[in-house]
Design a protein around this nucleic acid. Structure first.
Lengths: 343, 343
DNA sequence: TTGTAAGCGTTATCAT
DNA sequence: ATGATAACGCTTACAA
């Protein structure tokens, strides 16, 4: 009833357990005939390696942790989850390609015992490394723990490079917002509403600067048209409602992520405003939702899955001892769809 | 540099490692004073228990695996991922509440080495149990392995109960489709297009029966208005385009899940058809996307997160040896929003 | 190219 | 109420 062990395989193949181990880990110095005999025994026994035992014996664990913020409100999590999901898919695929496993590790930034939980998590020896999502990747407490612990980790879209935490991926947030704002200008818009991101997402500040610089250059920045959201749909709806009922309503609204942009869609819909005839809408991310929205959303594509994949591969290489170099900054791309009209 | 172990804690607290273990696992026969001393040592050392060692020693692992189908195409995964995501959130919360961890385990149903991979996964001793998503939960090979292995598992929304696999959650798929079809009838629709689910999702067949029975009862079932999709957005778009360009186009389209219903939204949009004035649309699931769509989608609510939560709690109880009873069938609810108009 | 022996950090058994 | 010691299944020296 109990699972076969490496000893059973060794006995059946008539070799030592060490040789079985060598075969299982793809080491080179094994005679092909021996290897074949071992594999046959493995198949015959339906043997599968015990991860815990392998971890314990000091080698790698072959387990990575994806650390993300998740508060108590389930619905809110779901609506903000799309970005995490996309990174997750990339990470899962990288894991799958390398024989790794991925653990989902939520952390509630707002919980009273946040620090204790964070410390426990980051000190768990089962994980070879951590993929840290925003905004946690910019949180001083987390950064501090990561450095002190000498943790193997990769940060997703952090606001700044850190010499002690060399692995991270992201896009040029400033430039992304800059490009989209320029596009809006090109399309003839001058009264542009803006929905910023949450204060604790450092990259949101970069995006705001990109937006502001372009508009100030063109002499049409209006602080009265700036609102803030939390990257969630509801906050986009609220800000959209607010902006679109202004006495002089904007001809376009630029939301710093797609989810909030889709909130603006609903605001427009409620006010019987047509997109893009009455109001244009722009986002950032190119999440699946933006593609399937009606009308499809014009946005700045961030290759999120590819970033998740690359980040995870770098982490895996690092956990294997290789010094991994990585394309830190991914190219973004303005995706013109149907939500922006000419003025 | 290396982490403190139970021995370090024991030395510092001046007790045996067994006592430390007792404290850590909340066993009763420990003097309060001793317990306090141990806890102090734990805190002082920043000790955290090694999951691998615990697993190896034969105890529980405190790790669950979420097993879902994921092919090679990343984009397709993303678009079909919303249901998995919702279950995942529920599962994560249940894990969090019980000190468990969740591993994401993709399995490609279409891969040539599917059986080998499935067997390896289901035999991994690191996991205390598995949460099996559709369509894997209905796959004969998987079911067979699960039973043979005597695996601790819970199936999400399987087509039928299995005496050997007592744990599962779901809704009454037949009734859900039945209710929605009845509603469509009530709203005056008679020419109703239908987009079915993939053949390998057994619950899709139940839903189809629900739809067909109502319409046949009303004498307006038309096989010519039945199409099939794969629960993905693109397939909804294609089927929608097809149905809406029929010489006599349907006044309403019922898609078996929200993602395909949103595909119909895009089809309507491309054909310049207004929802619900020109065509009504209905779905099933009540995923986040359906709520934020414009117009908000009328759908049958499935409490997906709650199901994920309950399923996971049952699994945890079972892995702790408790015979867990569980509300297998969750109540569904017709959510009227704005995508269905009166005829 | 292959094998032997030690040890990874925990829980379980059986003492005391 | 507490402790000593033996597993658990694997990898990593080191030997042969």
């Amino acid at each position: 009833m109990s699972n076969p062990t490496i000893h059973d395989v060794a006995a059946l193949a008539d070799v030592s357990i060490k040789t079985v181990s060598r075969v299982l880990n793809g080491e080179d110095k094994v005679k092909p005939a021996t290897r074949e005999r071992v594999m046959a025994a493995v198949r015959q026994l339906g043997y599968s390696l015990n991860l815990s035992a392998r971890s314990l014996s000091g080698a790698r664990n072959y387990i990575l942790g994806l650390v993300f913020h998740a508060g108590a409100d389930e619905t809110a999590i779901a609506l903000q989850h799309e970005y995490v999901s996309a990174i997750q898919i990339g990470a899962i695929n990288a894991c799958r390609a390398n024989g790794y496993h991925l653990m989902m590790e939520p952390l509630d930034l707002t919980a009273p015992d946040f620090e204790t939980r964070a410390s426990t998590l980051l000190n768990m020896p089962v994980m070879d490394g951590f993929i840290i999502m925003p905004p946690l990747c910019d949180h001083p407490v987390i950064i501090d723990m990561l450095i002190k612990r000498g943790a193997n980790c990769v940060r997703i879209s952090p606001s700044q490079a850190l010499a002690d935490l060399p692995l991270h991926v992201g896009i040029d947030d400033y430039q992304a917002a800059y490009d989209m704002t320029g596009h809006l200008l090109d399309m003839g818009h001058r009264r542009i509403g803006f929905i910023g991101g949450p204060v604790d997402h450092a990259s949101a500040a970069d995006r705001f600067r990109g937006f502001k610089n372009v508009l100030e250059g063109a002499g049409c920045f209006a602080a009265s048209m700036v609102r803030y959201g939390d990257y969630g749909w509801d906050s986009g709806l609220a800000a959209g409602l607010d902006l679109l009922t202004l006495p002089e309503r904007p001809t376009a609204i630029f939301a710093l992520n797609d989810m909030m942009a889709l909130g603006v869609y609903s605001a427009a819909h409620r006010l019987n405003l047509h997109i893009p005839n009455d109001v244009s809408v722009a986002g950032i991310d190119d999440t699946p939702s933006s593609r399937i929205a009606t009308p499809p959303l014009t946005t700045v594509r961030q290759p999120i899955m590819a970033m998740g994949f690359a980040a995870t591969e770098a982490l895996i290489k690092a956990s294997a001892g290789e010094k991994s170099s990585m394309n830190v900054l991914f190219a973004h791309e303005l995706i013109e769809r149907d939500s922006i009209g000419k003025r």
